[in-house]
Simulated assay, not measured.
Amino acid sequence: MAVLGPNRYGKAETRVVRVTRHGDAHRIKDLTVSTALSGDMAEVHLSGDNSAVLPTDSQKNTVFAFAKKHGVGAVEDFALLLARHFVDSQPAIRHARVAVEEHAWERNGAFGHSFVRSGREVRTCVAQHDGTRSWVVSGLRDLVVLNTTNSEFWGFAKDEYTTLPETRDRVLATAVDVSWRHADAESPQDWDKSYEKARAALLAAFADTYSLSLQQTLYAMGTRVLAECPGVCEVRLSLPNRHHFLVDLAPFGLPNDGEVFFAADRPYGLIEGTVLREDAPDAGPAWE
């Protein structure tokens, strides 16, 4: 004879980004929230009676709604608030487990709206030598950056399959994957200093470019590296567009004035391009 053992159900990995706006100084909390509920759930397993089941979609919506209604301070407080709510509001629920991961951001310089994901990116380098000549390509990947405003996207081509609305204000986020080629790899130079200057140029261009498209931002970032780093002759960038969609809170009677977003990791737009000096020397095998 079979009997039902311990069980639970919930919504895994709800991605919620909460932007708090105080004038020009914004604050961002970026979370992955997973909920799991257990209690008097025997009948849903044994007979398919769903009367005790709070849908996992409702659990996801609660996360978004609470991010708006209560804000997000310490992740422990937010998790406790959700767990207590589920147990107190649902007669069949005896236990709620809420797991929260916080993805930390740091301010990008003095810009109140621009942030850099905490934790250093991966620094990269490819060096080649053929016995007579050397080539060096430096770079980085997974430099995650985000602007909470100063980005638009409108006036794009449309066809019968277009559903994307135009926007005059959006969150712009990407994980920068970039390589830059040095014109002279033979002479001694301070590679560490060069790297930091290129990184700083990328961050500054991302922050202070009023973006009408990610393509425009890509070109501005590459151009800034060339301007700030005279020894660099070519920059190649790959920028995935990490979409942040405004959550519709109207069904819950809540406004959403650019405060609560759903962060989608896929599918994503991928913008790639090269910016180089007009007099850049031949690349040879540098990019191989």
Rank of each mutant, 00 (worst) to 15 (best):
L4D: 01
L4G: 04
G5Y: 00
K11C: 10
E13K: 12
T20D: 15
R21Q: 13
H22C: 07
G23F: 04
H26E: 12
R27G: 09
R27A: 14
K29Y: 08
D30K: 11
L31T: 04
S34R: 09
L37A: 10
M41I: 10
M41T: 06
H45A: 07
L46D: 10
G48E: 08
A52F: 07
L54Q: 11
P55L: 10
T56L: 14
T56E: 12
D57L: 09
S58W: 14
Q59N: 12
K60C: 00
K60F: 00
N61Y: 00
F66S: 12
F66L: 14
K69M: 13
A74P: 07
L80P: 05
L81D: 06
L82I: 06
L82W: 00
D88Y: 04
P91V: 10
A92S: 14
A99I: 10
W105Q: 09
S114A: 15
F115W: 08
T124F: 11
C125Y: 14
V126G: 02
Q128K: 15
H129R: 05
G131R: 02
R133N: 06
V136R: 09
S138P: 01
S138G: 02
G139Y: 13
L143M: 14
L143A: 13
V145D: 12
V145S: 12
N147C: 15
A157R: 07
K158R: 13
K158I: 02
D159L: 01
D159G: 10
D159A: 06
L164Q: 01
E166H: 07
T167D: 10
T167S: 15
V171Q: 08
A175S: 15
D177P: 03
W180L: 01
R181H: 02
R181N: 02
A183L: 00
D184Q: 01
A185Y: 04
P188G: 06
D192C: 08
S194I: 08
S194R: 09
A200C: 08
A204D: 12
Y210F: 12
Y219C: 03
Y219L: 03
G222N: 09
R224P: 10
V225Q: 01
V225L: 07
L226S: 04
P230F: 08
G231H: 06
V235R: 01
V235L: 02
P240Y: 04
D248S: 11
A250W: 06
P251Q: 11
P251E: 10
L254A: 08
L254G: 06
V260M: 07
V260S: 05
F262P: 00
A264G: 04
A264M: 04
P267T: 02
G269I: 03
L270G: 03
I271Y: 00
D282L: 03
A283W: 01
A283G: 15
W287S: 01
